[in-house]
């Protein structure tokens, strides 16, 4: 869980993890391999999934095709996903298999972008502000989905500025501010620490 305000550096952190932004320095290790010099597709194929903040659905492609783009061979240490299994998780998507991504609502797109990433059978996924711009009902649904994914054994790194949402799903939290980690601790500790919340997350 990465917490922090707009522009604090959460999205950039996530983009450098998946290789879309080249870090100036530092090391990124994933599944025991150094990945900071690899291309995004190589990192993704190691089992790291990325769900961008802007969703970036392929609007010309329908739901099934969007899932097809994300498909990768199954992995030993990760849950295996098929479109049918994903439609159990996201029943809405199952009802609109042939609908182009461009003609879906924001919430449906957010579901699809997560489902698409899961098609790569990742062992860990990066979720960049999944609650952004969504209605409260959908946010709750999103939280349930993320808890479901955790039960499947998936490691989830979440970036959020919505503390309520974060409290629903996260175990541990890092607070990012001006590109640096300012706080780390368990979600329960953070919830109890008014001073820290006031300093970094007050709105």
């Amino acid at each position: 869980m990465l917490l922090g305000r707009n522009g604090a550096g959460k999205s950039t952190t996530m983009k450098s993890l998946i290789g879309l932004v080249r870090p100036l320095s530092g090391e990124i290790a994933f599944a025991g391999r150094r990945v900071e010099r690899l291309q995004p597709y190589q990192i993704a194929r190691l089992g790291l999934g990325y769900v961008p903040e802007e969703r970036r659905i392929f609007t010309d492609l329908n739901v099934m095709e969007n899932l097809e783009v994300g498909r990768q061979p199954p992995r030993e240490n990760a849950p295996r996903w098929t479109p049918e299994r994903l439609f159990e998780l996201f029943p809405n998507l199952g009802r609109m298999r042939d609908r182009p991504g461009g003609r879906m609502s924001g919430g449906e797109q957010q579901m699809l972008t997560i489902a698409r990433t899961l098609m790569g059978n990742p062992s860990a996924i990066l979720l960049d502000e999944p609650s952004e711009g969504l209605a409260p009902v959908i946010v709750e649904q999103m939280a349930r989905t993320i808890l479901e994914l955790k039960r499947e054994g998936l490691c989830v790194l979440l970036s959020e500025q919505n503390l309520h949402f974060a409290q629903l799903v996260a175990d541990r939290a890092y607070i990012v501010e001006k590109g640096q980690i300012r706080y780390s601790g368990s979600m329960a500790e953070l919830a109890a620490d008014d001073a820290v919340r006031e300093q970094y997350l007050s709105v």
Binding site: R5, N6, G7, A8, E177, K178, Q199, Y200, S202
Partner: peptide
């Protein structure tokens, strides 16, 4: 428009 987004307190 969002004058303070991304700024420190």
């Amino acid at each position: 428009d969002e004058p303070t987004a991304g700024m420190a307190p």
